[in-house]
């Protein structure tokens, strides 16, 4: 484990990163019972960036997202959102504050219709805004419009992922957390999902993307963090990480 040796400097990047980060984790530690899951994660996400967290199973990627969205509260360290300490704010209030998430495994409400799933995504907003944004999501994912009256559980995996992303967009998040959006999808669908992630970002939503598919993630992201057993072992520009020897060996499947 080469935790200290490969700490690349987070160089100034493509997206303008002056000033205060939109989202910042400072030395965050979390526990599941006695298990020390996150062992001091620090990271920054700036406005309009796509930042990716890559790493193996159990590295702490999903746990990091839970520390951000309020489902887990850090025992040490801080989560700052827009400069405000939100370490102990409950999850449902963070949605109002502007953190939206498409969770791991999609977690569609299978016995609600597609439309109702989207309406749930806009739970914190007024009915008129919801009606407008439903149209916006349908424009992004025309497939969902065709299926609007079907139950969520009847959709295919790819459609469910579109619904999960669309549902997360309904709260008009300032930062969108995406947890393994490509999981279980066919290669063509993976391409589609990543194209959509780019488009959402181009429309002005900051994205924090957790992926096992490191190559795709680094292609779409501006910057990345590599996690290993609850620590950040490497951070930098996505292009630099793609060239990094350790990343290539461990995560891009090169020998």
């Amino acid at each position: 484990m080469s935790e200290t040796s490969v700490q690349a400097p987070p160089a100034a990047g493509a997206a303008a990163r002056n000033g205060q980060p939109l989202l910042e984790l400072q030395d965050v530690h979390t526990y599941y019972g006695h298990i020390h899951a996150l062992q001091g994660i620090s990271l920054e996400v700036h406005r309009d960036e796509i930042v990716t967290l890559i790493g193996a199973n159990g590295a702490g990627k999903t746990t990091t997202l839970k520390a951000i969205n309020g489902l887990l509260h850090p025992r040490h360290g801080k989560v700052l959102f827009d400069g405000r300490d939100v370490s102990h704010v409950p999850a449902h209030e963070l949605v109002r504050a502007g953190i939206g998430q498409a969770p791991e495994g999609r977690r569609i409400f299978s016995r609600l219709t597609v439309l109702e799933n989207l309406q749930m995504g806009g739970y914190t907003r007024s009915p008129r805004e919801v009606a407008q944004d439903v149209e916006r999501v349908f424009a992004l994912f025309p497939r969902l419009r065709e299926r609007a009256r079907q139950n969520g559980g009847t959709l295919s995996g790819g459609e469910q992922q579109m619904l999960a992303i669309g549902r997360a967009l309904m709260c008009r998040p300032q930062v969108l957390l995406l947890d393994e959006p490509s999981l279980g999808l066919s290669p063509i669908l993976v391409q589609q999902i990543f194209a959509i992630i780019r488009e959402i970002n181009a429309q002005g939503t900051t994205i924090l993307l957790v992926e096992q598919n490191a190559l795709q993630a680094l292609n779409v992201a501006h910057r990345g963090y590599v996690l290993q057993t609850g620590r950040v072992v490497l951070a930098g520009e996505a292009a630099a990480l793609r060239q990094d020897e350790m990343v290539r060996k461990a995560y891009l499947g090169e020998i």
Partner: peptide, 24 residues
Amino acid sequence: TRLGRAMRSTAQDREAAELMGVDI
């Protein structure tokens, strides 16, 4: 209703409902 939807969502997946902004 909106609250009725929140009840059904909470019944199906409490954590996901929380991530939609529902006060469980």
